[in-house]
């Protein structure tokens, strides 16, 4: 079932001078048509300024289309009456956890969302518990968020969104400020939500290795969707990705470079396991 649909979505940042005359128009999102199904794990790639974040902000009605339309779970985001329903269905997690954690204690922070929605107190606490358990932060529920690591803070932020029982979570570079361990914690937690709870994930990232398990990848450039496919299809096009100021995981690059030297290894290798087994297939008999 379709969860998110954008129809010819265009968004322009319009700058005006003191008299209100238009000074400049920047088209940040340009005629984008997306169709994301419930339960999918979608990744969006693109260089800085390609329009990813602007697109993401349309999904929970922080921004509205200049032209075209966005439908979240069948609701038009321009429909003001549906605003809270839309924000509850599609939660958002930003880059810097410090900007979105407000509570003095972890469990209070996670409870803020449902409380704000008017959920009865008893249910708030059960939601807080299940959300913190889902991201593996339950044992920290009485801690102060200030004392947590970056990865832990980000998981608390995710739990805060989860407690609103969304159908979809949009993550805008959630790991950009984290160390390798923190990155892994966050990615594991959100993949778990997708696989176990069936929550639709839309992950924006600059770390290519985080998206090898995505169901579908969109690549943006100048506000448009320029590539669309499975991770394997996308990562098979190393040169094109580089032109778009992107990259591929190291293992993919290694296979690509060997292939250029004449080794008969396929493009779009995504994991170490695949790489080792391809090398074994080709050269294993020597031993």
């Amino acid at each position: 079932m379709s969860f998110l649909k954008t129809k010819d979505l265009t968004f322009e940042y319009i700058r005006r001078d003191d008299e209100g005359n238009v000074e400049s128009v920047v088209t940040a999102v340009d005629n984008v048509n997306l169709d994301v199904h419930e339960g999918q794990f979608i990744a969006i790639l693109g260089h800085n300024g390609s329009g990813k974040s602007t697109l993401a902000k349309h999904i929970n009605a922080i921004l509205y289309p200049t032209e075209g339309a966005v439908f979240v779970d069948g609701m038009d985001t321009k429909d003001k009456e549906k605003l809270w329903d839309i924000r509850q269905r599609a939660g958002m997690v930003f880059q810097n956890p410090d900007n979105q954690i407000i509570g003095q204690v972890v469990e209070e922070d996670v409870g803020f969302g449902p409380e704000n929605m008017g959920v009865p107190t008893a249910e708030i606490w059960s939601r807080v518990e299940e959300s913190l358990r889902a991201v593996g932060m339950y044992e920290y529920r009485k801690n102060s968020p200030n004392r947590l690591s970056g990865g832990q803070k980000q998981r608390v932020a995710i739990a805060g969104v989860l407690a609103m029982h969304p159908k979809c979570i949009v993550l805008d570079e959630p790991t950009a400020m984290l160390d390798p361990n923190g990155r892994q914690e966050v990615i594991r937690a959100v993949r778990g939500l997708n696989e176990v709870e069936g929550i639709t994930l839309i992950l924006i990232t600059h770390y290519m290795e985080e998206i090898v398990h995505a169901h579908r990848v969109f690549v943006m450039d100048k506000g448009r969707i320029v590539m669309d496919g499975t991770p394997r299809e996308i990562f098979s096009q190393v040169d094109k990705l580089r032109e778009l100021r992107l990259d591929v995981p190291q293992v993919t690059m290694l296979a690509h470079e060997l292939r250029k030297k004449g080794v008969d290894i396929p493009e779009g290798i995504l994991t170490r396991k695949e790489f080792i087994s391809e090398i074994k297939k080709l050269y294993g008999k020597v031993y």
Binding site: G46, H206, R245
Partner: peptide
């Protein structure tokens, strides 16, 4: 390079 795209990095 935190937060930059691979090209910028």
């Amino acid at each position: 390079t935190a937060g930059l795209d691979p090209g910028g990095r």
